[in-house]
């Protein structure tokens, strides 16, 4: 019994420590966004890594999701004679939910794990210590650019996912399911407005922060050599994905 309480106590201490450290690192990273000299080169490099290099996977995911969504919604809506609503169903699902969430999950898998691995390797090979001894703040140099990249790139990627999803849905709906193109576009325009897109974009802003913060934290505090680096990469993906899904529910509840 005592062992159980000791274990629970240790888990509680770890949870508090991790949360505290994560908020500390976030506070420092945000503080350094406004303190010159600005590491523009690093920021652009990270924006390219998070944004441009995730483009292919995001386009692929978005377009196939839109195509599947069109087929599934056609199947359901046909039963009510409402096939003309396939367009808005795809567009609203993509803009409000699937676009931001799928983009975030894809970026977590691709960029989050790579970030944690890179920072973890830098930690275990003393490169982060070397930065510190050169009087360069590692949070400013390594983490602030990653968080700025996450905050700025996820909304852009989300809009791209939404767009290719709608195009995918249109392709399936019009060419394969024989929905009239005018009806498809007209209904979509009638039912979907800018607020729906902004709703998803707002979510993606938070997801961008979660992905980069979790990955940076896991990498930055890596211990235990090569095994520790592997653990950091795994944790960055698992914790990142779980937090994205939980925060998605919370954000949806707030903005519903």
């Amino acid at each position: 019994m005592r062992e159980l309480f000791e274990r629970l106590g240790r888990m509680a201490v770890t949870a508090v420590t991790v949360t505290g450290n994560m908020f500390l690192i976030l506070a420092q990273a945000v503080y350094f966004i406004f303190i010159p000299p600005y590491k523009l080169r690093n920021i652009v490099k990270q924006m390219e890594f998070v944004g441009v290099k995730s483009l292919f996977v995001v386009i692929l995911t978005g377009s196939f999701t839109g195509m599947v969504l069109a087929m599934q919604s056609f199947n359901a809506l046909k039963r009510f004679g409402a096939e003309s609503l396939v367009g808005p169903t795809v567009a609203l699902s993509m803009a409000r939910e699937l676009g931001p969430v799928l983009t975030a999950l894809m970026v977590t898998g691709r960029a989050g794990s790579a970030m944690a691995t890179e920072l973890g390797t830098m930690r275990v090979t003393e490169q982060i210590d070397a930065l510190y001894t050169m009087a360069i703040n590692p949070v400013k140099y390594l983490i602030t650019p990653r968080i700025v990249a996450g905050l700025s790139m996820l909304p852009i990627l989300t809009v791209i996912t939404d767009f290719v999803g709608v195009i995918g849905g249109y392709f399936v709906g019009v060419t394969l399911l024989n929905i009239n193109p005018g009806v498809y576009i007209g209904r979509t325009v009638d039912f979907v407005n800018v607020d729906d897109i902004m709703y998803g974009v707002t979510k993606s802003f938070f997801f961008g922060l979660i992905i980069t913060l979790v990955a940076s934290y896991q990498g930055f505090y890596t211990t235990g050599g090569a095994e520790g680096v592997g653990r950091a990469a795994t944790n960055a993906v698992v914790v990142g994905c779980v937090l994205i899904l939980v925060s998605d529910y919370i954000l949806t509840s707030i903005m519903f």
């Binding site: 390797t121 830098m122 090979t125 003393e126 490169q127 210590d129 070397a130 001894t133």
Partner: peptide, 11 residues
């Protein structure tokens, strides 16, 4: 200045 055990060069 500091020289680390593994040199700690930036990869």
């Amino acid at each position: 200045g500091m020289l680390f055990q593994g040199a700690a060069l930036f990869d």
